[in-house]
Design a protein around this nucleic acid. Structure first.
Length: 170
DNA sequence: CCCTGATTCGC
DNA sequence: GCGAATCAGG
């Protein structure tokens, strides 16, 4: 895959819009996020506005062939509070306006989807389709789906019940 | 573990 | 010039 003027233009545009390298790579297709980052640097676009200056690493130390000694630090104390720990869910709640919710399973806020393209999905992202598959803005939910399920907590509730009982959602 | 960008260096 | 491998950090 070569960097045509057109692809470079797209790269410049998306990068300036604040998309991450992996997202840009997904949209361009045929390139890895590393390729995108590499190109960004060659184009000297790394700044992207006002970012903290890079401290610059002291070169790459020679690859150590010796295995590191297996250290067992200390068993971390188990937190009493249950942690959800899903970054996607975290972001979604942080982004949402603060709102008090009753402790009810019925009262679940419709998640803000990450709007991922098909190629951006991983094994643990929600694959609930959103929109018209033939439309330009078609995407998948993309939120954290857990270890095995194909859907996030919210869409899983809809996926595994009769269509007649589903509530129309995005 | 998921992700991010930064850097080096063999190709 | 390109980008995988790697690093450092969230």
């Amino acid at each position: 895959m070569i960097w045509t003027d057109e692809r470079v233009e797209t790269l410049r545009k998306l990068w300036s819009e604040g998309l991450s390298a992996s997202q840009i790579a997904a949209q361009l297709g045929g390139v890895s996020r590393n390729a995108v980052i590499g190109k960004v640097h060659r184009l000297k676009l790394s700044g992207r506005g006002r970012t903290a200056p890079s401290p610059a690493r002291p070169k790459k130390p020679a690859q150590a062939t010796t295995a590191k000694p297996p250290q067992r630090p200390a068993p971390a104390p188990r937190p009493v509070t249950a942690s959800v720990g899903a970054t996607a869910l975290q972001a979604q709640f942080e982004a949402a306006p603060a709102r008090h919710l009753e402790a009810s399973t019925e009262n679940i806020v419709v998640p803000i989807s990450r709007q991922l393209q098909l190629i951006e999905l991983s094994e643990r992202t929600c694959k609930w389709p959103i929109g018209d598959p033939l439309a330009d803005d078609f995407h998948f939910c993309g939120n954290e789906s857990g270890e095995t399920g194909p859907y996030c907590r919210y869409h899983a509730r809809l996926a595994f019940q009769p269509a007649s009982e589903r509530r129309r959602v995005r």
